[in-house]
C-alpha cells in the first residue's frame, strides 16, 4: 500500500476524482429518475449516454469543427460548446425516447412482469451498442480540442485545471437546475406524484404517460450533458464505451440511494474519489475492486444507499 504517494498527491487525486465523479453523477441521474418513477433499472441508459458522445461529434462536424482543427477563439469556443451540448442532448434525448417507445411502452401496456422489463432493457442496450458498432466499424473517434488545458488555481499541491473545474461546475449546475425543476415546477410535481402513487396521481388528472416521457427526456438530456463533458475530458468515443460507464453510473446511483437525485450526485462524486484514492493506494489495477468493495461495505450498513430516499419523498 502506497500511502506516501496517496498523501503526496491527495490534492490532484481529489480534483480529478471529483471531475470523473461528476460525469458518473450526471449519468446516474438517468438511472435514478427512471427507477424512482417506474421501479425499472433502465440498462439501456448507458447507450443513451454513448449516443450523446456521438451526437456532439456529429454536431461539431456539421458546423465544420474537425478533430485536428486549431484551438478556436474564446467566443467560438462557447459557440462550439453550445453546439456540442445541443447535439449531444438531442441525440441522447431521442435515443432515450426511442427506447421508451419501442422497448418499454408496449410492455407496460400489457402489464408485463418486472423481470421482462429488465431483460428488455439489457436487450435494448446490446442492440443499440452493436448497431452503432457495426455502423462505425467499431472504430475509435477522436474529439477536437476546444481549449488548451491550463492550471487555473493551485491550492496546496492541488492543481485545478480549467477542464476539471469546468466539468465539476457544469455538472453541479445541471444537477441543481434539475433538482429545482423536480421540486419547484408543475411538471416536476407531476413526476413526484407519479413516483409516489401512480394510480392516485392518475385520478388527480395527471397524464402518466406524459410524465414518463418527460422523465426519459430529462434523463437523456442529463446523459447528453455528461457525454459532452466526457468528450472534453476523455477525448475519444467508441460504440462500446457505454457499458463500463453505465455500470459505474448505476453503482453511483445505488451508492447514493437509487431513486434519489441528490443521492446520485453524492454517489457519483464519492465513487470518483474512492476510485482515485483506491488506485493510488493499491495500484491502478485494483481500482474497480476497491470501488465495489466500498459499495458493498456501505450497503451493508446503509442498505438503501447513502441518502436512501425515494424520488417521491425527496424534499425541496
Amino acid at each position: 500500500m502506497n500511502f506516501e504517494f496517496l498523501f503526496a498527491n491527495i490534492g490532484d487525486l481529489t480534483v480529478t476524482g471529483l471531475s470523473q465523479g461528476a460525469i458518473y453523477a450526471l449519468i446516474a441521474l438517468g438511472y435514478t429518475l427512471v427507477y424512482g418513477l417506474l421501479k425499472l433499472i433502465n440498462f439501456a441508459h448507458s447507450e443513451v449516454f454513448m449516443m450523446g458522445t456521438f451526437g456532439a461529434l456529429f454536431a461539431w462536424q456539421l458546423v465544420g469543427l474537425h478533430e485536428n482543427n486549431p484551438i478556436p477563439s474564446v467566443p467560438m469556443m462557447i459557440v462550439y460548446l453550445l453546439v456540442g451540448l445541443v447535439g449531444a442532448a438531442v441525440w441522447s434525448g431521442v435515443t432515450a425516447l426511442a427506447v421508451e417507445f419501442v422497448a418499454y411502452r408496449p410492455l407496460r401496456r400489457r402489464n408485463a412482469p418486472r423481470l421482462v422489463f429488465l431483460i428488455t432493457a439489457i436487450g435494448a442496450s446490446l442492440a443499440i451498442s452493436e448497431a452503432v458498432g457495426i455502423a462505425t466499424g467499431r472504430q475509435q473517434f477522436g474529439m477536437p480540442d476546444l481549449f488548451k488545458t491550463t492550471t487555473l488555481v493551485t491550492i496546496g499541491d492541488a492543481h485545478i485545471t480549467n477542464l476539471d473545474l469546468g466539468v465539476i461546475v457544469a455538472a453541479i449546475v445541471m444537477m441543481v437546475v434539475l433538482d429545482q425543476f423536480i421540486n419547484r415546477t408543475r411538471l416536476g410535481r407531476g413526476i413526484r406524484a407519479v413516483a409516489q402513487d401512480s394510480d392516485t396521481a392518475a385520478l388527480m388528472g395527471i397524464n402518466k404517460n406524459r410524465v414518463i416521457v418527460l422523465t426519459f427526456v430529462l434523463g437523456g438530456v442529463m446523459a447528453g450533458a455528461a457525454a459532452l463533458l466526457y468528450n472534453l475530458k476523455i477525448g475519444v468515443t467508441r460504440a462500446d464505451i457505454g457499458f463500463l460507464l453505465g455500470i459505474k453510473a448505476f453503482t453511483a446511483a445505488v451508492l447514493g440511494g437509487i431513486g434519489n437525485l441528490r443521492g446520485a450526485l453524492l454517489g457519483g462524486l464519492a465513487l470518483g474519489l474512492v476510485e482515485n484514492y483506491g488506485s493510488a493506494l493499491f495500484g491502478t489495477s485494483w481500482r474497480d475492486v476497491v470501488a465495489f468493495a466500498v459499495l458493498v461495505i456501505i450497503l451493508m450498513f446503509r442498505p438503501t444507499g447513502l441518502l436512501g430516499e425515494s424520488l417521491g419523498k425527496a424534499r425541496a
Partner: peptide, 19 residues
C-alpha cells in the same frame, strides 16, 4: 503502472506519471 484494455479514463495513471 498498468491500464486495462478498453479503458478510456487514465487520470490515475497520469497522476502517477506526473508524480
Amino acid at each position: 503502472d498498468t491500464v486495462q484494455p478498453k479503458q478510456t479514463d487514465f487520470q490515475a495513471t497520469v497522476a502517477k506519471v506526473k508524480a
